[in-house]
Amino acid sequence: MSKHRAAGPGRAVLVPGGPGGESPAGDPGADLVVDARDLTLRFGGVTSLDGVTLRHHRGEILAVIGPNGAGKTSLFNCLTGAYKPQQGSVAFSPEPGRSHSIVGKTPHSITKLGVARTFQNIRLFPALSALENVQIGVEMRQRYGSIGAILGTPRMRREERSGVEKSIELLELVGLRHRVHELSASLPYGEQRRLEIARALGTGPKLLLLDEPAAGTNPSEKLELAELIRTIAGTGVSVLLIEHDMRLVMSVAANVTVLNFGRVIAHGTPAEVQRDPAVVEAYLGTQDDDSVGESDAPAGDLVGNGGTGRDQH
């Protein structure tokens, strides 16, 4: 698909805070890649998501922020099929005019539709090489089966070759060309994060979900990461980003959705969200924080002068 809207033009749809929010019926003509409405997810007695509505415009970099335990990763898990929300709907539209309901689908079929993700605590295939990790992603779209593999059909050889080529291109893109044959578990932390992104890109996504990609990386890696995210968005992939590092969020995201206690408390451009009193309160916190270290760093980060690069995990 063509570049619809790269990161930048703020298209703030401010969803009023409060329980459930009203379903954003407004802006009906919007080209949404994700239209999630009223997602509610409970574990036993704990409500992890409480009527969350998320609208992600095509081609946009959207960030989801919020204190720990606000439900960000739960939201990701609902979007990728790892969890099935008890209520609500998720419509994913890989291209304009085509839309799929995602709730109830298995994670791999959602990936096949065009949603890829990374994990908060890196989940690579540790005993496989960097190349093989990416190959797994690339090869999920290949067609040859076990019989083709055993017989070594021409199609199998062709697909095998193109799979390796594409995987190496992606490793190049994330700056890991020199690590092709190294064991993924032996890579440094920051490179593992980038390898995970390459693997996700291998699946040919229209929507990429990044769960705290900057966690545990150093400041220069963060700059490279921001660049990488912009590059990815530049190729027409919509990016949904969970991130604690506000400087990164501010520098790449077109819009920000803020979650707290499983609810959306604000949505808008980074600048708008920063000024939102509900957000400031959520971060400065009158409630007692179980959020590890959140209370000290992000409040500063939120106004843009923090960004010490420290991470809490």
């Binding site: 994670p107 791999h108 096949k112 890829a116 993700r117 989940r123 295939f125 496989l128 699946t203």
Partner: peptide
């Protein structure tokens, strides 16, 4: 090696 990651990778 990681069933959940495999599933998420398609």
């Amino acid at each position: 090696e990681d069933e959940i990651a495999a599933e998420a990778t398609g």
